[in-house]
Nucleic acid binder design. Structure first.
Lengths: 307, 307
DNA sequence: CTGAAAGCGCTTACAG
DNA sequence: CTGAAAGCGCTTACAG
């Protein structure tokens, strides 16, 4: 017995109708008046034969696959990626689409695009950075801006008024790091506080220098809001080397809490982001669906030893 | 001017031949005696029209895409993944294939498989865990086993003879963690040393308990070979809490060095793995190509403060 | 040495 | 209410 997969013709034969009718029933094609009895016969045949449409054939016919490609870019390793992807994947699947995440180079992507012919290509930095509500509305914004406000809010509540914003030196984080800087500066200004951008290189010597300069030029700075946990770790290492400790000399808070924050010595306070809802919304938008009422993205600072 | 993409018929028309001939030339179909002059005409037309074969149509005809799907599984976040993927991607691309890496759930994968119809599905744990040379040949093995031997060798060279093997408690690391345990036990036995497997939970209290038990039951143990950097970090945190320090009380070495090893307090010695060559070989094997002479996978311990 | 024809499995005007 | 036919863009027996 050869068990090659059932085709739409097999279903048609089993249901005593034409492939056309099967297609109409399966796709709920609008404008067709097919009686419930016929629909039922078709569905039974589908179930019985275990028929599932051939996606490649459909893609050839329709011009593209029911697939969405998500370009992770520099956000690749970020902690909230997992929840974002999970949310997006779930929502996409609910609407018959599958998600492909790409981490690779530009050349590799060209091949991939040709091979899978996705319906949509999403750029994570773009969607995460911009959100879909009007910009500059004074607070009820989404995506990264809201998260940045929560991170800063933690420091503000603790009484800090002069706050350094620690950005990575690695240029591959652009345009994300500039965006963050602007968001934090705006949020600080709204609260009557000061944000001081500083660049933190990964190498210990460079980091030490950046830290020393901050201390010298801005002696009133009492806290550091880091671009992400990794930058916070570099800052913490530089502070340790300089005989400084958190939060006494400088409070430090991370962003997009990863699994190392709690393990670090000292344990790092950081912003925990659940991006699942954000992923779901991005998926709906990509499919041209209504995104519904917006809820603030859930994020909160988990306070540990460094603030 | 409509710029819909060129098809094989357009190329055929431009070259004054049939689509059949174009296909034969483009695919170097064996057994066809096409004169160089004709081939040249075809290639010129291809270049002039910027023709590139429609991958979906080809996939429908051939039954599968020229695509390889790599299942990352629990190795998802591992540091050597990036180099492995880069090597695999490069080699695949050289042979007209593209790589898709999947991190998702089983349900999501089903959809994806249907949608892209990959030529091959690779399971990273399986290929990484087993390698392709005969097992148990006493050293000239590849993949994880060779790496484990290098990690242990570092401790052996430093004079350690009773070495704990710190494994994660998370069951999702199976069967990888059992495999590693066996590899390390075998390598230790060959060197006349002892390997002591211990399970390290992620929670501080559990980790502290595991550490205390090790100290009590195996007072002669002087070193710990960790399953990966994360386990090493948990161990280091537990040691710090217990007032122990590395390497004086216990030497600690990580595995598959990530970006946090150097930043940690204290800086962690760890095994650095370059898996690009491994990825290239796995790609060749997946395509049914000769894998060539094997070279030991490059890995080395970067020594820092903990050993 | 080269081409007409069939067919991969769908969807969708079009006709009745 | 339903179906025959065309066609998405390829590849590959088959025939000459």
């Amino acid at each position: 017995m050869t068990s090659s997969r059932a085709t739409i013709r097999d279903v048609a034969a089993a249901a005593g109708v034409s492939p056309t009718t099967v297609s109409f029933v399966l796709n709920d094609t609008p404008g067709q008046a097919i009686p419930e009895a016929t629909r039922h016969r078709v569905r039974s045949a589908v179930a019985q034969l275990g028929y599932t449409p051939h996606r490649i054939a459909r893609a050839l016919r329709e011009g593209s696959s029911r697939l969405v490609l998500l370009r992770a870019g520099p956000l690749r390793g970020s902690a909230s990626m997992a929840s974002l992807i999970a949310g997006m994947d779930e929502e996409l699947r609910r609407h018959g689409h599958a998600l492909i995440v790409t981490y690779g180079t530009v050349e590799a992507e060209r091949e991939l695009l040709e091979a899978v012919a996705p319906r949509t290509v999403l750029d994570l930095v773009r969607i995460y950075g911009s959100g879909d509500s009007p910009q500059g509305d004074g607070g009820d914004v989404d995506g990264l801006e809201a998260h940045a406000a929560v991170q800063l809010g933690h420091l503000l509540e603790l009484g800090h008024r002069s706050i350094a914003v620690a950005l990575p030196a690695d240029p591959s984080f652009e345009p994300l790091s500039s965006l963050r800087r602007r968001q934090l500066e705006a949020a600080a200004a709204r609260a009557g506080a000061t944000a001081i951008p500083i660049i933190i290189p990964r190498e210990p010597s460079g980091a030490a220098l950046a830290l020393a300069r901050l201390r010298a030029e801005h002696p009133r700075a009492t806290a550091i809001a880091a671009f992400n946990d990794d930058v916070a770790f570099v800052v913490l290492a530089a502070m340790h080397a300089a005989g400084l400790s958190a939060p006494d000399d400088l409070a430090v808070v991370g962003f997009d809490e990863g699994e190392h924050a709690a393990l670090w010595n000292p344990p790092l306070s950081s912003l925990r982001i659940d991006a699942a809802e954000f992923g779901r919304r991005a998926a709906r938008r990509a499919l041209g669906l209504d995104t519904g009422a917006w809820q603030r993205p859930p994020s909160q600072v988990v306070r540990r030893a460094t603030t």
